[in-house]
Design a protein around this nucleic acid. Sequence first.
DNA 1: AATTTGTGCAACCGCCACCTG
DNA 2: GCAGGTGGCGGTTGCACAAAT
Length: 184
Amino acid sequence: MEKEACISVEPEVRKGPWTMEEDLILINYIANHGEGVWNSLARSAGLKRTGKSCRLRWLNYLRPDVRRGNITAEEQLLILELHAKWGNRWSKIAKHLPGRTDNEIKNFWRTRIQKHVKQSEKLTTLPRNNVDQLTFMDQVLPSAVSQSYEPNVATSSGQGSIHNFPTQSNDQNLWSMEDFWSMQ
DNA sequence: AATTTGTGCAACCGCCACCTG
DNA sequence: GCAGGTGGCGGTTGCACAAAT
């Protein structure tokens, strides 16, 4: 009895995966009213979500210009370059990748790049003829990434010099796609 | 076929900066 | 100048699915 009363008093805040119905409510509300103060937007739209949750869902998933799926080799290179310059400034990096979200880039870095870094630790024991057969990701990413892991490099100072990936400040040394493909 | 392990991704959490009254 | 509210960001977690055993 009393338990029921307590439950009913608690503010209803939904967590976890979004349903299609919630997505539609959010999309329609923003289509009609635009983005705004997210907390009041959530309330006005009748969503039992926090403003933060609505914002995240919109920015990372529902926004019309969000690109999903495979990150191209070009984008991978750009991510590496920018990460070497700025470190884990995902939102800043995402601004240079149209349609990509900071969350997606962050996930990409954790799941793909860090995996290759771990693999690279094993590579140091490989004989040379085996190393020659490795892919671009196996050969180039770990060295570039391991340097950007250095605390002094992964700062926002932009002074880190990555010999594998020249920064944009040095226009003459910018990598082209031809450079990239020629490595394979 | 069943179980375990690994992987990818969506979403949440906590902190900090900014804005407004 | 200060306090409260809000947004933005980076780190982390949890879950679903795939691959391996």
